[in-house]
Design a protein around this nucleic acid. Sequence first.
DNA 1: CAGTATCCAGCTAGATACTG
DNA 2: CAGTATCTAGCTGGATACTG
Lengths: 151, 151
Amino acid sequence: MATTTAAQQRELAKGRYDAFLAACPSRQLFERLSDKWVGLVLCALGGGAAGPGVEASGAPRPLRYSELARALAGVSPKMLTQTLRSLERDGLVARTVTATVPVTVTYEATELGLSLHAMVRGMKSWAEDHMDDVLAARAEHDAGDRPGSAP
Amino acid sequence: MATTTAAQQRELAKGRYDAFLAACPSRQLFERLSDKWVGLVLCALGGGAAGPGVEASGAPRPLRYSELARALAGVSPKMLTQTLRSLERDGLVARTVTATVPVTVTYEATELGLSLHAMVRGMKSWAEDHMDDVLAARAEHDAGDRPGSAP
DNA sequence: CAGTATCCAGCTAGATACTG
DNA sequence: CAGTATCTAGCTGGATACTG
């Protein structure tokens, strides 16, 4: 066991990592978090998933592999597994196998994963809430921005 | 002019977009936001940049192209320009050209960009603050997790 | 159900060199 | 200073097919 607590470690870590630096490990971590599937998986496991059989309850609950696949429309088995494995390795997601027939596997966000959920969910909500603003900005930009070119 | 205000538009947009759906425009927007350079640029323009000549003031201020290039260590001119152009098009960043010799170009986050800043900054801070936790989780995972395989 | 394995098209993004 | 242009290695990730 370490002689310092997790809280102390985190305190010491303040300022030790900087994602702006290319060589800093936190840069790689930031890049991993900046992945659409990572974001969507975390949103789903944080309680943001909806769909047939998966209501948007708002409360985090374990989801089965197939539920995740349904929630993240368009995800391939390969990417889903790959994403889940990386999240599991990083301690953000816990994988639980139940020996039924056929086998049941559930995934749920760990405490660490949950601590990230607010931000990721915020990003997703932001994208949904400001879609129209962005669409408008694009239209204005693509139109040429100059008054003279407006009809 | 539209007959509805931006606030009303946003109100109406509630529930109209869902990034979980592959075909939803907000999914593409979410994917764009889930880009390391987008995240880092937004962090820098939100006042999170530090370095030689660029102190981490915490207050958002316009940055020049070269300041951004220095802040985002390792970014290539191509990616920086590409990222800035896409952010400009989406109305998240404003580009200002001042006719000096040589020409001075500054970028700053728009109100829309600033509204996203909290989340992105949160992600970057999270990565820095929890780097040790993730490192520990990886070590444990890679060791095999099982007590029997520990030395 | 919950993956794994394989193949490959295509996009990404870095390196590099050049310009108004 | 602030880009633009070009080339390409290689990684990403989708399609597809198969398995315990």
